[in-house]
Design a binder for these strands. Structure first.
Lengths: 221, 221
DNA sequence: CATAGAAATATTGGATCCAATATACAATCC
DNA sequence: GGATTGTATATTGGATCCAATATTTCTATG
């Protein structure tokens, strides 16, 4: 187990730090699906007692990232193909709507920020950074929707499937294809065409979902 | 503070029991918006230590039902009018989709169960039971969508605004209107018209949202 | 040697105690 | 009398200890 550095600026408590570190480790795939998470082990890694660890695990369970069983411990949750398909459908629905709501509020600075992320995504060669940059690209546009509750749900649903997306991006032509789709979405945004940007976002997500599912079917047999 | 009995069948731990009891108290409005929740006080009510209470509060915070501040404690979260509007929009979006996905799977037994809930809703005079029965009516149809992730999100978003809906149902013509709309939704379901059922569900939720917002504007000034 | 039962170990959930700090209130000074 | 400072209290977050039980290991027996 390895953990990334955590942004402690708004992590008031030890439980927050542990939660955020575990969350990142799970969504980035550093903790394998089905891997056992023992409270004592994690506590020693972070130099804290088991109390804040338990709080962090409890939160992760609420978000569906792990499952726990008394006396047996927690394991990183895996998703069935059906669950993955459902989450992609869900994302397509709400992110298309968020995009539609965002377009009228997009200003020059936001578009330029999104362009920068798109370029960074195309240039990036490290698979471990694709997910993060992809998120930043989409979030930078989504934020203009001024819909915090939607965005919270976008984040939660993305958290659940990010690990799988990463695998798919690494092993298929997902990156160049996503790059082209980002390009088209951004063009629609620049034209101020909310309906088109929304539709392209929906297709972008459904495409990635289909590609991932066929990839996983091959992998899982 | 009063708490309803908790279904302990799947509440393995004390933390689960406290969580479920507090959740219900909040969504049913028994705990007033802004009310202070002190760990020690809750612990004594449930005859447990503060540890499981803290875990329960942590989960509630993750779901947005309370907010906590170190050394100051937790308070029941209130929603601004804007936040309420956003959650209704969100519900309209996803519940309309769930309804659309459910209609092809509706069988006779399910429709009869939904009819029973619709009738019970119309007959019910206790405002405290409207919310629960309304939920049962909608859930009984939604479940046919076989989309657990969607349903989880339906539940989470409904949890956030149920307390306000309750007030609106009590003080406006919300109940008879909702009754008529339930009737129409059910008719569309019986005809197997997914598009119509979806549209009516969307309008049903947006109507309730608009009605609630005007009610709250009058109340809050 | 394989298997069944018993003891040892591992692991979680909860209780009690300690540390840190925000708030309330009283004492003091102008 | 009002403002300011200091202390006492309230309250949370975390550490340590205890209880309960699942898992593993060891031993005895056929």
């Amino acid at each position: 187990m390895k953990f990334a550095a955590v942004d402690v600026r708004q992590a008031a408590s030890a439980a927050d730090i542990v939660y955020e570190a575990l969350r990142r480790a799970i969504i980035e795939g550093d903790l394998a699906e089905g891997e056992n998470l023992r409270q004592e082990e994690i506590a020693q890694m972070f130099n804290v007692s088991r109390i804040p660890v338990r709080e962090a695990l409890s939160r992760l369970e609420q978000h569906g990232l792990i499952t726990t069983q008394r006396y047996k411990g927690a394991v990183v949750a895996g998703l069935s193909i059906e669950e993955i398909e459902e989450i992609f459908q869900f994302r397509a629905l709400i992110e298309a709507e968020v995009m539609r709501l965002a377009v009228p509020n997009l200003d020059r600075a936001t578009l330029e920020r999104a362009q920068a992320y798109r370029d960074a995504f195309d240039r990036e060669t490290d698979p471990h950074r694709w997910g993060e940059i992809n998120r930043m690209f989409h979030y930078s546009l989504y934020e203009a929707s001024h819909r915090p509750y939607y965005l919270q749900n976008v984040r939660a649903s993305l958290d659940r499937i990010d690990r799988y997306l990463r695998a798919q991006l690494s092993f298929t032509d997902g990156v160049p294809r996503a790059g082209r789709e980002h390009e088209a979405i951004l063009a629609a945004c620049e034209k101020g065409d909310a309906a088109l940007a929304s539709l392209l976002t929906r297709d972008h997500i459904l495409d990635a979902g289909r590609s991932l599912v066929t990839f996983l079917r091959g992998q899982r047999g």
